[in-house]
Amino acid sequence: MNLKPHFSDIVAGIKISFAYKFDFLIFLITAPINLIIFAYLWTSIFSITGQEVIQGYTLQTMIDYFVLSLIVSLLAWSDVDTWIEIDNIKGNIIANFLKPVKFIYHNYFFELGLKIVGFCINIIPVLILAIPFLHLQIYSYTATAIALGSLFLASILTFMLTYIIGLTAFWLKRIQGLRRLKRASLLFLSGGIIPLSFFPVWYTYLSRFLPFEHIRYTPINIYLGIYTTTSPWFTNIYTILLIQIIWVLILWYLAVKIEHHAFKKFAGAGA
């Protein structure tokens, strides 16, 4: 795959980010809100529960969890399903097929540009809040490095899942319901509302082999040292990274295959 033309997609993403300065300001104000709420919530829960550790988390690591969840959100997000739906309805999607690049990578690298800028700018207020006030710290530099790698994979997973949902717009035209369902269930099933260790035990086993927890829960737990290189296989970093990589490959393959059929649908029906 020739990467040179996609450099232009990344640059486009970066440039367009700067066209939306107002949204950065809004994010500065709203992003800490969830964090503040969860910090208060869990502080109050831990204050009466009489336990030091609940489902594997101390108060500190629980707050860390939600800080990291916010950081993960800065990279593991995707709106490609919305754009495909809107562009397809307006008819502008045809412009993408006149470019000498595959649609999937054109979209991926464009979003990568948006993510790079978004991450660099938005991480600052998060760290300003988290380090002095919420006592975020690095538990292990190796773990942090591996977690960043896992986060990168999580970002690809999010994109692929969202992209596949977006492709259904070629058949279904309007997919707002599907998109909302995807957003809500991904947030919940990836541990965005509560760590997965709180879920029923049978589900925690199943979930390990599904892609959803690898979008958020996996990189967070690597960072926190809950998964280590020496743990038993079920919580071993190597096993879990392997599962994550396998899902990246599976979804990537699916996305390419479905795109092939989506384009055939688009071109066959004449749009």
Binding site: I45, G177, L181, A184, I193, I194
Partner: peptide, 26 residues
């Protein structure tokens, strides 16, 4: 799907809280 999605999403929060009450004093 739109209607169901919103409906379902409104139960996910309470589901999470249920898990909290199952494992702590709430």
């Amino acid at each position: 799907i739109k209607f169901s999605a919103v409906f379902l999403a409104d139960f996910l929060g309470p589901l999470g809280i249920l898990f909290i009450y199952q494992h702590s004093a709430g």
